[in-house]
Amino acid sequence: MAALDLTADPVDLTARLVDMPSVSGEEGELAAAVEVALDALDHLEVVRSGNTVLARTSLRRPSRVVLAGHLDTVPVNANLPSRRTAEHLHGLGSVDMKGGDAVMLHLAATVTAPRHDLTFVFYDCEEVEASRNGLGRIERELPEWLTGDLAIVCEPSNAVVEAGCQGTMRIELRATGRRAHTARAWMGVNAIHALGPALALLEEYRPREVDIDGCRYREGLQAVRVSGGVSGNVVPDEAVLTVNFRFAPDRSVREAEAHLREVFARTGLVLTVTDHAAGALPGLSAPAAAELVAAAGGEPVAKLGWTDVARFAALGLPAVNFGPGDPTLAHTQEEHVPIAQIHRCAEVLTRFLAR
């Protein structure tokens, strides 16, 4: 295992991280390299939990900033090893999110006398089911490592502060009917046809837009799956429509469910919530968050999607996303991160954290 040079140019460090494969569940080699590199820094306390590596300062500063990034990637898709052009670094995880991890590691090594105490969380299994997420495990087993005054999740955000995040909810709308031979269709009740009113409501739905702390969140309600049918000559007696609701963080999960029940109340379909996750308010009025926005020198924007900032928000920490890379390139074979954005994120966060 080659050593990581955390003081190197963060672009070079990103390339080193990309070239160490770490598909979800297989982060061991990379986690070990990160642990060894951080353990060599005298100003940090370092702890390993599974394939999650934690490090923090204890300088008795009046505030603490938590920086978090996941080490895992989606499966390899003919996009390793890394390669570099004049403006971009290409390769699996370069966007999601080894560019952000490299910036965090560089800060851990170079910002040795910060004006906030710092906690760094490099966690595993973010790209798979939530029950395996290393951040959730740390919340359960080592909760004292997730306390602070601001959390920065270095997920790709095009090097712009993205505040909070949307909540998400999936529901199933189930219709029942009565089977019959299609040659005698009048003797049955077609469950697929019964989904028609719900589909019409979705077509007519106008999503709400709401401004929170100067960030504009737009909600969305979309059908994402339809299932039903028995065979080519049978009137179906059951059909299910799956709908995804992306809601602004001023709604709670309970309020989001109540809204959906109101929207579909007249359809007569049975509504079941199958998955949900609360959003995160921007929290930009918190002093540390305001300082970060000032250091970034630009207007924050709403995070349209769900990220692990919601985990921190649930713990009472204002949380933002700030990292290099275009999130629309995440999980694609063409994944690549602008070199300038890696440098910008490192410079902004150094300016924000350094005394």
Rank of each mutant, 00 (worst) to 15 (best):
Asn158Cys: 15
Val235Met: 05
Leu315Trp: 02
Ala163Met: 12
Asp308Ala: 02
Thr182Met: 06
Thr14Arg: 05
Pro327Gly: 05
Phe120Ala: 10
Asp124Trp: 01
Ala40Met: 08
Val153Pro: 01
Arg132Ile: 00
Leu292Ile: 14
Glu219Thr: 04
Leu71His: 05
Ile192Leu: 12
Ala78Glu: 15
Gly228Tyr: 01
Ala40Tyr: 11
Val53Lys: 00
Met20Val: 15
Asp213Thr: 03
Leu67Trp: 14
Asn51Thr: 02
Leu221Glu: 02
Thr168Lys: 11
Ala33Trp: 03
Phe247His: 13
Glu129Ile: 04
Ala200Tyr: 00
His336Asn: 05
Ala109Ser: 07
Pro282Leu: 12
Val263Ile: 15
Ser231Pro: 01
Arg60Lys: 09
Arg16Asn: 13
Val111Met: 07
Leu281Ser: 15
Val153Leu: 06
His259Met: 09
Thr85Ala: 07
Thr57Ala: 10
Arg56Tyr: 01
Ala2Met: 12
Ala185Gly: 02
Ala32Asn: 06
Leu329Arg: 14
Ala277Leu: 13
Asp124Ala: 13
Ser157Asp: 14
Val224Asp: 11
Phe264Leu: 11
Ala191Pro: 02
Thr242Ser: 15
Pro282Lys: 13
Gly297Trp: 14
Arg60Phe: 02
Ser157Val: 13
Leu44Glu: 04
Asp101Gly: 10
Val128Ala: 08
Thr7Trp: 00
Glu219Tyr: 08
Glu155Met: 13
Arg132Gly: 00
Gly196Lys: 03
Ser231Gly: 12
Val253Asp: 14
Pro197Val: 00
Asn51Phe: 02
Thr57Met: 11
Ser227Gly: 09
His90Cys: 10
Val74Glu: 11
Val47Phe: 02
Arg83Pro: 01
Leu349Trp: 06
Arg216Tyr: 06
Ala191Thr: 00
Ala130Thr: 05
Leu6Arg: 09
Glu26Ala: 11
Glu291Val: 05
Leu317Gly: 10
Leu349Glu: 11
His106Gln: 06
Leu281Phe: 14
Phe120Gly: 08
Ser22Thr: 01
Pro156Lys: 14
Glu172Arg: 15
Thr110His: 06
Ala8Pro: 07
Glu139Asn: 13
Ala295Phe: 14
Glu139His: 13
Leu41Thr: 06
Ser22Glu: 01
Val46Ala: 08
Ser285Cys: 12
Ala265Asp: 12
Pro249His: 10
Asp72Val: 12
His43Ser: 03
Ala314Asn: 05
Val293Ser: 03
Glu291Arg: 12
Met169Arg: 14
Gly305Cys: 03
Asp211Glu: 15
Gly28Ser: 11
Gly283Leu: 12
Asp117Glu: 10
Pro21Val: 06
Asp39His: 09
Ala280Gln: 12
Ala280Glu: 11
Pro10Lys: 09
Pro282Val: 14
Ser63Gly: 07
Phe352Ser: 08
